[in-house]
Design a protein around this nucleic acid. Structure first.
Length: 279
DNA sequence: AGGGATACTCGGCCGC
DNA sequence: TGCGGCCGAGTATCCC
């Protein structure tokens, strides 16, 4: 499940592979992936003849910047891009194919069909969903202990839920939220507005450090070993709690526990992340 | 009004 | 072999 470090890795790879390519046509095999424009047929028409100038990232979204259009793509759990020859055999999980004028093609494959694509006129993407309401980038000056404190102060929700919702900070999903809370020694069920100043500062550092290291290692490859480009992240070897239910805590040896928080599987160390759950 | 909870999308996979 | 339930990111929708 791609979170900020994985999406950042994909962005860097795509910037090496598809810059300067011009779209010949787009084949849409599963129209539900296309969320904008409403008529998915117009998505293909609008991109024909457009050249890709760069790929950017905002939170977990990829932005493909064309001449006059911007395509905003979210991979959700299993979305993947692969560049190949245009006659590469697409399997049943390949839902969108961008054919280029140089006889290569970008294949979008997504087993769960959960991914989304929005197409905008260049410049209008920031004022509309899905980018409109996103919080600060965690690895930018816009995110700070102060901004995190303000976000925490304004809500009665538990801290894990706050971190997942992309308003206090973007880019965290289930894996890195659990890892950051472990690193900060904060229980996932603590109420956000109950965190002390010291704890908030610790959480800020933990988020930044966890994401920085994961980006450096090319993200995590969790439960998908058939990554076709051979490009596997290495951060999964650094996970302290995610996917480690029952295994000894790397810090204190206590067995890692798994609970549900807001419907999401949540991993934590019952010793290292003690502290009042304020409930 | 605006925060919070819930429904919805989807198919591989698990347990029975 | 079949089948129901689970998982999960983000948005739409409802509720308070």
């Amino acid at each position: 499940m791609p979170e900020l470090p994985e999406v950042e890795t994909v962005k860097r790879t795509l910037n090496q592979l598809i810059i300067g390519k011009t779209v010949k046509h787009v084949e849409i095999r599963w129209p539900n992936i296309i969320k904008r424009p409403e008529d998915w047929r117009r998505f293909s028409k609008a991109l024909a003849g457009e050249t890709i100038h760069r790929v950017r990232r905002r939170g977990k979204f990829l932005l493909f910047c064309f001449d006059s259009k911007v395509m905003v793509s979210h991979l959700r759990m299993e979305g993947r891009y692969r560049l190949a020859a245009e006659n590469y055999p697409a399997d049943k999980h390949t839902h969108v194919i961008f054919y280029f004028t140089d006889h290569t093609a970008l294949f979008y494959r997504d087993v769960r069909k959960f991914g989304t694509m929005h197409l905008f006129e260049k410049g209008e993407e920031w004022a509309l969903l899905p980018l409109k309401k996103l919080g600060p980038e965690p690895l930018s000056p816009a995110f700070s202990t102060d901004s995190l404190s303000r976000a925490c102060a304004g809500t009665t929700r538990v801290v894990k839920t706050l971190l997942l919702d992309q308003k206090a900070v973007v880019g965290l999903g289930n894996i890195y939220t659990d890892e950051a809370l472990f690193r900060a020694c904060i229980h996932p069920l603590r109420r956000a507005d109950g965190l002390s100043g010291v704890e908030t500062a610790r959480l800020y550092r933990a988020i930044v450090d966890t994401l920085r290291e994961a980006v450096r290692l090319g993200g995590s490859t969790v439960r998908t070993f058939k990554n076709s480009q051979g490009r596997m992240g290495l951060f999964q070897q650094k996970l302290h709690v995610y996917g480690r239910e029952g295994l000894p805590c790397t810090r204190c040896g206590a067995p890692i526990r798994k609970i549900k928080v807001g419907g999401r599987g949540t991993h934590f160390c019952p010793e290292c992340q003690k502290g009042g759950t304020t409930l």
